[in-house]
Simulated scan of single mutants.
Amino acid sequence: MVKKADREDFFRRLAEDNPDPRTELEFVNHFTLLVAVVLSAQATDKGVNKATKALFAIADTPEKMVALGLDGITQHIKTIGLYRNKAKNVLALSEKLVAEHGSEVPDDRDALEALPGVGRKTANVVLNEAFGHPTCAVDTHIFRVSNRTGLAPGKTPLEVEKKLMKAIPPAYARPAHHWLILLGRYICKARKPDCAVCKVYDLCRYKAKTA
């Protein structure tokens, strides 16, 4: 596990390399962010962005999404994996936002997780990106990085998340999950990590890391 004294240096280096990390999902407001994150489950951000460009141009509010209807939503996102079920969730969550939240995305974990298609990871992304909460959405990239580096090893995403919230220095709490996602996506890749260009190479505890 990364030593406590090294954690500050770990995130300081990532911050220096990318001072203002943002999600790679494209959105225009809190509602479209929520929809994009729901659609991104088991899909790439690039694929989601390609599908939602036209969708968000005509349906950037819950009311417009409801008016578009299930068939309309389905046609726009059919290039995304699990699109039929996702279309149903997008319609249902839009209807619930209109009926129960005044068409606004709630700044509340429980309310978010009560929306169709929204789990803990999605709620964490929305709370962080939209409302500035210091949350950490543990996807496959963060799970891999946390275990490989020894930053927050765990057997489940929730276990890793809880350890990360303790391991991340307070000054880096909000942007940390973006750095870790990008590290896993582009450097600490699943099949062949590019250790030679990693900013935290010497702090990493991964036994199989390359030179």
Rank of each mutant, 00 (worst) to 15 (best):
E8H: 11
E16W: 05
V105I: 04
P170D: 08
R191T: 09
E129A: 07
G69I: 04
V38A: 06
P153L: 14
V200G: 04
R185I: 09
H141G: 08
P153A: 15
D202R: 09
T61M: 14
G102T: 12
L97Y: 03
V28F: 11
R109S: 01
K64R: 10
H141V: 08
L182R: 10
T122L: 04
D9L: 14
H101F: 13
T149C: 13
A57G: 15
K96A: 13
R13L: 06
L151R: 01
A15E: 11
S146Y: 06
L158Q: 11
A114R: 00
P170M: 02
K121H: 09
N49H: 05
I187C: 10
C195Y: 05
E8T: 06
L180N: 03
T44L: 07
T52K: 03
Y186H: 15
P19A: 10
L14P: 00
F10H: 01
F11A: 00
L180R: 04
V105Y: 00
V145M: 08
A211M: 15
L183Y: 13
A51L: 03
A87S: 14
L183D: 08
T140P: 03
T61K: 13
P169A: 06
D110T: 05
T156W: 03
G154N: 06
A190K: 14
A152C: 08
K189T: 14
R148H: 15
S94W: 07
H30A: 14
A67K: 09
Y83D: 04
D139C: 12
L151C: 07
E113T: 12
F56L: 06
S146R: 08
K163G: 10
A208Q: 03
G154A: 08
N128R: 10
K166T: 05
D139F: 05
I168R: 00
V105K: 00
A211Q: 15
L82N: 12
I77N: 02
N18T: 10
D60R: 05
A176R: 01
T140E: 07
V200F: 08
L70S: 11
E26Y: 07
K162L: 08
A152D: 04
T79K: 13
G72C: 13
L97N: 01
Q42A: 13
A167S: 06
G47Y: 02
D71I: 02
L183N: 10
A43K: 01
L115G: 00
K192S: 11
N124F: 09
A57C: 15
T79Y: 03
P19Y: 13
C198T: 11
T23W: 05
N49W: 03
N49L: 02
E113A: 06
E104Y: 07
L39V: 10
E100R: 15
A123I: 01
K3E: 08
K4D: 13
T79C: 06
A54K: 15
G184T: 07
L39F: 12
V118P: 01
K209A: 15
L91M: 13
E161D: 08
V138R: 09
E26C: 08
L158G: 05
C188G: 06
H178E: 10
A92E: 15
L180P: 01
L25S: 06
P169K: 05
A173R: 12
V125Y: 00
